[in-house]
Design a protein around this nucleic acid. Structure first.
Lengths: 246, 246
DNA sequence: GGGGATTTGTCCGTATGTATC
DNA sequence: CGATACATACGGACAAATCCC
């Protein structure tokens, strides 16, 4: 009775840090039970008993998993399986950009370049397989863009929705989420920096119209060029904004 | 003395959740003081005094920031500014893939498709601006690949290094990190699933040789085709692996 | 290499706010 | 509205790891 292994954690030699082990255990629990997003998880009390750890350790591990959107905690109600979205990427990239040792224009240009490469490559695949319903949905969005542009208003949400719907037809759920993540980082940084949003809505609406027109004509090369032009416009706006604060 | 605003947090009405507010405060502290990655942060005791909260709350917030790689905690030493790497993305995507309601082959195909679009678009820009030193570094890597292939051994690390060095010349620090993140997710899932690594190293080495040859000849279209062929090979391997466990 | 100081890791107990039924 | 279950937050205590002298 000289040494009593309080729990099974030390004996298994899985991890020396309790907190890390709890994180792995909770993730493994979700995987083992095939719990879908939104499914209820054991309460903190149940976890501290089944894992043999204190409430504080459970909470710290749960907070870490919450930051990764692997679990979702609702105050006074319970803990649930999270959506595993790309929110952590948005938070991380936003912080990284704002904290950049160099000026943020360079960091934002990097993000923009990746978006550009992605969308230029994707538009080709979209042009091949888009159907009439997809074109109709895009037409509706572009129509609303032109309406807002005539009123002289910017339309960041419509812009985002356009690109999101554009790649819905690919059947790749990760693509719209990744592009939305980059989009969110860009606009969140712009908001913090106090940049004005889209000084020329009419031009932006025209760019989207060009993309849709090329898509209708099944003009792959034209769609690629239209998308490239669109990004030239964004870069120009971004460059002017940084010039303004210098 | 009837009401003493212990801190400025409640008065500003920024957030009603203490934990969330601490997270924002610590991030803002890093931004305000222009602290670079690796710089020391206040100790837990200092934070609980300056923010007027308990140690548990400080620790929970710090654990969340640690999961995002925004801070780095060293047991018995101190807390430091993190690298803000893409580790959270790797963790999230790996979990998301393993927990996928559909089979993981679909989820991995999504990741692979994004890598494919990215690298096919990037290789074009690389072919324009790569110098002799870059070609020499790639030559060295491909040479070691061919050596390993002759010995019948797989070379996952060399594969990863090849793609990483390939895009070093772009001057976009985010590109290699993002590709490395996708690469890590793919191989981590493959490891968990017990897939065998690269059954035909000779073919893989040949694909990389093709890319390098096209790059030397400044053959943009050829480089793009070689890269596409490379991904066809990966997809074939991935498809066979999932067939094997069925 | 030994010892003390500092800092994070873990645990316990208690009180409070919050959402659901 | 009350009752209940749950997360949120606080305070104190000791253990473990690291560093410095």
């Amino acid at each position: 009775m000289s040494e009593e292994p309080r729990n099974t954690r030390q004996a298994a030699a899985g991890e020396r840090r309790v907190g890390t082990q709890i994180r792995r255990d909770v993730m493994q629990l979700i995987l083992d039970r095939r719990l879908p997003p939104g499914a209820p998880l054991p309460t903190e009390a149940e976890l501290m008993e089944s894992l043999g750890v204190s409430r504080n350790s459970v909470r710290e591990a749960l907070k870490a998993l919450q930051a990764l959107d692997i679990v979702e905690i609702r105050h006074g109600y319970g803990t649930y399986v999270g959506q595993a979205s790309l929110t952590p990427l948005v938070d991380g990239l936003t912080f990284r950009t704002l904290a950049g040792v160099a000026d943020d224009h360079a960091a934002l240009t990097e993000i923009l370049q990746i978006r550009e490469v992605l969308e230029e490559g994707l538009i080709r695949r979209v042009a091949d397989g888009i159907g009439d319903d997809g074109l109709a949905r895009l037409e509706s969005i572009v129509g609303r863009m032109e309406g807002a542009a005539r009123a002289g208003e910017a339309f960041p949400d419509l812009d985002r929705t356009f690109h999101e719907t554009l790649y819905d037809t690919l059947g790749n759920a990760l693509v719209p989420q990744l592009l939305a993540a980059f989009w969110n980082v860009y606009h969140r940084v712009a908001k913090v920096r106090g940049w004005t949003s889209d000084p020329a809505p009419a031009v932006t609406a025209c760019r989207h119209r060009d993309i849709l027109t090329a898509l209708r004509a099944r003009d792959v090369a034209g769609a690629e060029r239209a998308m490239a032009d669109h990004f030239r416009g964004i870069e120009a706006r971004s460059g002017q904004a940084t010039l303004g604060v210098r």
